[in-house]
Amino acid sequence: MFSPTQRAMLYVRDAKQLADLPAVIERYGLDQPFVVQYGTWLGQVFTGNLGYSKVVSQPVSDAIIQFLPATLELAIFATPLIILLGILLGTTAAAHKDRPLDHGTRVAAILGWSLPTFWLGLMLLMIFYGFLRGFLPPGRLSVQIDLLVNAAPFIRYTHINTIDAILNLDGPVFLDALRHLVLPVVTLSVVNVAFIMRLMRSSMLESLGKGYILTARAKGLAERVVVNKHARRNALIPVITVSGYVFAALANGVVITETIFNFKGIGWWAWQSAINLDISSVLGFALFNAVLFVLVNLVVDVLYTRVDPRVRLGQGVQ
């Protein structure tokens, strides 16, 4: 643990401020017991003050708002990809159980989630940026486009480059933003696709073993309909439950991915803060994530009741 002096030192920018150190420690209660400091911080959080981010010289809450759009952009592209690809591959693997396609996807899945995300990112950069001469570059936008985007007549509605490009009907910007998105989105997705795929597969297998599948076949339905209509809907239920955790995994991946690709979102900011020991920022980031995670799980729980008619909010076991 750092001493109060050390912690105050983090915020010192030049020698003159050294003299003010004792006053600063006094004022911010840096020498108070841990519990008291926590209480103060918590109190401040409820008034909306998350502290000051030394790294970007802004209040933490402002920093979050500033960096969030970039991360949202990644999430918007990665999430549907992960879910759809995971469900598709999982269903296919289950339908071809114990045959080459199943084994192949299984190996791919295990490889997928054994991959260190940061290493995958670096390798992809090496190949697609280095070897293929800048085909898929890091960062959010190339330099020229960046200048374009930050000047009139381009209007920044959401600060999400792809959406803003569409709203401004600007093709080149859209394509440029997309080009920069490919690698980070792929890096983020691989691990999660593997996870969803395996879950979907085992869930499908369980579903396919149930009685109503035999009934469906006995009705004369084509195998494709049996699998897609009857089995899959039931198999999706556990997968939906898990999507809250996928969000958490994405949150983790975002830190590494943004760092590697210099994609300036909240993950990147959090990393900068962590390295520079900007505790307020890191705490604020962790808190933000936790709140978001709880909210996402809440949404998932509600969604769950829509999908599974056996479950209704507020009821006990029937």
Binding site: Y212, L214, A216, R233, N234
Partner: peptide, 14 residues
């Protein structure tokens, strides 16, 4: 056509 033993299992819950 066929009717099975466990009606609960034979019907798709969703």
């Amino acid at each position: 056509s066929m009717v099975f033993q466990e009606p609960g299992a034979a019907l798709n819950p969703v």
